[in-house]
Every structure is written in C-alpha cells, then in structure tokens.
Design a protein around this nucleic acid. Structure first.
Lengths: 115, 115
DNA sequence: AGCATACATTGATGAATGTCAATGTTGCGG
DNA sequence: CCGCAACATTGACATTCATCAATGTATGCT
C-alpha cells in the first residue's frame, strides 16, 4: 500500500462534482480504503468508545480491556483508523490519546451519498 | 458466515438508542458487515454505475465492461451488495436487473453517525 | 428439440487481513 | 543509571478475500 490521501483534509476545494456520472478507478480506490478501515467490528467499537469517552479522547490502556484484545492488536487497529483520517493521535508523556478527527464521520457519509 | 440482518429493513422501529454509550460486539459485527461490502473499489463503482444508470437499473452485461472484470467476478460482487441490503435484484427474462435499494445509502450513513 | 445467450455457482490460487508472542522504543520515577 | 510503564513494531500463522477458468442453470429463439 502506498499511503493514499484517504480522507481529504477539511481545507478542500468545493467537493466532488461527478463529471463522468460514475466513479473512476482512482476515486473508487481512495474511497474504498476509508470503508476498509470501517470494515472491522473492533475498529467500529474503538471509534464508538473514543467518541463517547470523557473529554472525547482515550488512551490505549482504556481500550484494550473492553475489546478483549491484546495491546499490540489494539495499537494496530488504531493505526489503521489514524491512517484513514478518522482518528487523531496525540502523545502526552507516556500515554497516547486518541480522539475523533472533527468532521471525519460527516465527510465519510459524504463519500457514500455522492456515489 | 451465517447471513446476519445487515441493513435493517425500512420498516424498522425508531432507530438505535445507544443505551450503553458504545457499540456492543453484536451491533459492531452487524454494522461492520455492511462496511465490508463497501470496502472494495469495484463494488463502489458498481453502486455508482447502477445509481446513475438509465432507469436506475443495470444488468450484468452492462457492468462487466466498464470495470474490466470477468462476468463471474461481477456476479460475485453484486451478490455481496445484495446480501448487504444495498442492491435489489430483479430477474426479467434472461437478464438480471440490479437497482439501488431505496434509502439504503442513507441508512448506511446512519450507521456511521450513530456510532 | 436444439442451440445460443445471460447469469450463477464451484473450485482453485495468490494476496490481503486480524491476531498474538516477542521485542523495540520512549518517557517517568527513584 | 536502572527499572518500570505505556505504547509501537516485527514476525509468524490462520483466515478471509478477490479473481479467474470451468461448469451449471435457466430462458428465449428457430
């Protein structure tokens, strides 16, 4: 994988006028990689827990127990969500705090409705 | 896989009050299976082509060429989209016509925003 | 009946994915 | 400096997945 621009940043020009009438191969691949990040039950639960966490953020140690997964596995899933542009990672001291990227859920919905 | 109720039918009771505050394992699996259907570029293109097709429907023979895929592969992808509740299949004569299930895109967006 | 067309299903194969154990890295406290 | 705690990375393994070739199943036509 070559690290595609998954979720376009908020500072994007006016969005997605479908000139051809249907998705070209490139756009389809970009969008599919975002849905790939959502295509795992544990990653959906991670998003849900982070979203409803106190302060809107959570560290790995808070996430490994409710999912009943090992710490390396949780870190792996979190990395996929960060690479997809859905989660933001901020390291403070020894802890890594994950939070939802503002607007990322809405932008992902947009990827669906502008098919 | 045991054929889970992927996209709840339109005749669903008032939607998804999150009692626990975060997704339980079952709900996460149900929702993930819908996003799994969307996690492939060729399937996204299929949805896009069907959506913008004349009359809102298309047969397999219209879909195999723009995707540059074999007919069995296209049929396979279409089956996944039907099983996910996103496409509807209607057989008329020798042809099989696929169309978007009304409201399925919006319901899928709902699966995102109610995480 | 016989044949061609449109589509589905099966089986096989290479690639991608989820998980864990082991190890590496970084920051904090004594 | 030493050890511990939190997290990331690597390597291995089993499972799932996307694709195709071959075959099966209807349906329409002559």
């Amino acid at each position: 994988m070559t690290s595609l621009p998954l979720l376009e940043p908020a500072t994007e020009k006016d969005c997605c006028p479908p000139s051809t009438g249907s998705l070209d191969a490139y756009e389809a691949q970009v969008r599919a990689s975002v849905f790939k990040a959502l295509a795992d039950p544990n990653r959906l639960r991670l998003l849900s827990i982070v979203k409803s966490a106190d302060g809107g953020e959570a560290c790995v140690c808070d996430l490994t127990e409710p999912l009943d997964l090992g710490q390396p596995t949780v870190s792996h899933h979190l990395k996929i969500l960060v690479d997809a542009g859905l989660l933001h990672r901020e390291k403070r001291g020894t802890w890594a705090y994950y939070s939802l990227v503002p607007g990322s859920i809405e932008r992902t919905s947009g990827l669906l409705e502008t098919l």
